[in-house]
């Protein structure tokens, strides 16, 4: 599908519709870019700082009390950790969930249309005790909150 659009855009450009095509791409909000591919670059990082830089482009994170993250303090099972996030930040466009010490720190990226509230649940895997960081992109700023979740091997099962 991406291919088709590229070809389409290419064609448009060649017939001299450059202005129309480029402005359409810029104006179109994130959520409406329905045919974007999985962001391979963001998920390629194995270090938290690099993953974070990939997301924000180096822009500073702002600690926010308007993001509430519900996650257990101690994981009963590191393969299945219930996670809920809600936020009252206006104009939230994206939510990123990262587990600092996971082999791939970025777990998920949610792209929200104005028709959904910032109220999400998911289930995460965690390799070891780590901070879980949730970032909300709203109004061009990256807001975050974090929490530590303890994970160890089970006493019996291992």
């Amino acid at each position: 599908m991406m291919q088709t659009r590229r070809q389409f855009i290419k064609k448009t450009l060649t017939i001299g519709g450059a202005f129309w095509a480029s402005s359409w791409l810029i104006v179109k909000p994130l959520w409406a870019q329905t045919e974007t591919l999985w962001p391979i670059g963001l998920f390629a990082h194995s270090k938290y700082q690099a993953a974070l830089k990939g997301i924000t482009g180096g822009q500073a994170l702002i600690a926010s009390k308007d993001i509430t993250m519900t996650i257990p303090r101690i994981a009963e099972n590191g393969a299945l950790i219930p996670f809920t996030l809600s936020s009252t930040l206006e104009k939230a466009e994206r939510v990123f969930v990262l587990v600092k010490k996971n082999p791939v720190p970025l777990v998920a990226r949610f792209t929200l249309s104005p028709q959904v509230n910032t109220q999400l649940s998911a289930r995460l895997k965690m390799a070891e005790t780590s901070k879980v960081v949730s970032i909300v992109l709203a109004n061009g700023q990256y807001y975050y909150t974090d929490k530590t979740v303890k994970v160890t091997l089970g006493g019996c099962g291992g």
């Binding site: 101690i74 994981a75 009963e76 809920t84």
Partner: peptide
């Protein structure tokens, strides 16, 4: 079981029971 004793584990369990895998 353990959920009767451990509030953290109980919270996770109840969350998972919402739509259990």
């Amino acid at each position: 079981g353990v959920y009767a004793l451990d509030p953290d584990a109980k919270q996770s369990w109840l969350a998972i029971e919402q739509f259990p895998p």
